[in-house]
């Protein structure tokens, strides 16, 4: 009797599995495997940016998440290869680690695309990512414009809170910003490494602002730092909204919804917005080109009215890279529905 009970439980779970299964794919349908660290928050937006246009084309999108486990991502991508998908898209857990999966896909003749992070050490079909250097430029220009307006000439003190400088993305965000500010010798920069950690950012703001007068703050990620920084300014009685005396100009990269709201209320001023929803639609476009057998040429890609335009397509030793423009967000265009922070 017990064994019957056990068997019935097993059968029951099988039935559950069966009902969840998808029976067969039409032979002609294009199937694309999508591997991401997770499918919530920003990752969900990136995924939807891919899924919606892909499904509009009648493609089938398979998705897996790794939860940050590089081994699981490799296993999952191997399962895509087993199923003979037409293309694989990944937001790599790890730039070098993904190459193991890329090699397996290439062996099976399946084109491999990455989003947001490029591969390191192997060639993929294409990587779509934001032009982080341009984002640094945009924030830098906004800071210089503010200081020029405030003092009549570009001078003053800027606090620069970085991400983890061991990572390429933080180096680009720093390089683009420094490129602009270094043209103005009267602007003093205080640069501190925040390692993408909000608590570290808070400590930096406290330490620096308790000894120095700062005119502007530039942060590598508003998703991480913006809310806690504004909060800290309030606690230190150094907060003043935009337009009032003593307002500290805050520029940042990413354009998270939190910071969009802060710009709207006048607590922060500028964001270089990531083209998050456009990563996926661009990948869909280029997969289609690949399937049609169209060759792609390096150069500038332009599309009128698109926030990501112009984009730069360059050939590198890790494959084609498509750099989408970041969007220079200020109070003037903060309500644009195309911004991912508004979606």
């Amino acid at each position: 009797m017990l064994i019957r009970k056990i068997i019935s439980v097993v059968l029951l779970s099988m039935t559950v599995l069966f009902s969840l299964s998808v029976t067969g794919i039409a032979a002609a349908q294009i199937v694309v495997g999508y591997a991401a660290p997770s499918l919530d928050g920003g990752q969900k937006q990136i995924f939807d940016g891919f899924r919606v246009p892909a499904e509009a084309k009648g493609w089938k999108v398979l998705s897996v998440t790794s939860g940050g486990d590089a081994q699981k991502q490799i296993n999952d991508i191997n399962d895509f290869i087993t199923q003979g998908v037409d293309a694989i898209v990944a937001v790599p857990d790890d730039s070098a680690g993904v190459c193991v999966a890329v090699a397996a896909a290439q062996e099976a003749g399946i084109p491999f695309y990455t989003i947001d992070r490029s591969a390191v050490g192997c060639q993929v079909e294409m990587t779509v990512l934001a032009d982080n250097h341009l984002g640094g430029n945009q924030s830098g220009n906004a800071v210089v414009a503010h200081l020029t307006k405030k003092y009549g000439e570009p001078k003053g003190t800027v606090l620069h809170i970085t991400g983890n400088l061991a990572q390429n993305v933080a180096q680009l965000r720093k390089g683009g910003f420094d490129e602009i500010l270094n043209q103005h010798p009267n602007i003093e920069q205080i640069t501190k490494e925040g390692s993408w950690k909000a608590d570290k950012g808070v400590q930096i703001v406290r330490d620096v602002l308790s000894t120095r007068d700062v005119d502007a703050i530039y942060m590598h990620s508003d998703c991480v730092y913006s809310e806690s920084t504004v909060q800290t300014l309030k606690e230190m009685d150094q907060y003043a909204p935009r337009g009032e005396d003593g307002h500290i100009f805050i520029a940042a990269i990413d354009g998270c919804s939190a910071n969009i709201a802060l710009i709207r209320e006048g607590s922060t001023d500028q964001a270089s917005g990531q083209p998050i929803p456009d990563f996926g639609s661009m990948v869909v476009e280029y997969i289609q080109k690949k399937l049609n057998g169209e060759a792609i040429e390096p150069g500038t890609v332009v599309k009128d009215g698109a926030l990501w335009s112009p984009a730069q397509l360059v050939m590198t030793d890790v494959g084609f890279q498509l750099y989408l423009s970041t969007t220079d967000i200020s109070i003037d265009n903060v309500d644009n529905p195309g911004l991912w922070g508004n979606q």
């Binding site: 939860g67 940050g68 486990d69 590089a70 081994q71 490799i74 857990d93 790890d94 730039s95 070098a96 680690g97 190459c99 193991v100 390191v120």
Partner: peptide, 14 residues
């Protein structure tokens, strides 16, 4: 050897 690149979170929740 399988993941090639060793993230500091390698094996977490395993």
């Amino acid at each position: 050897g399988r993941v090639v690149s060793i993230q500091p979170n390698l094996g977490e929740t395993f």
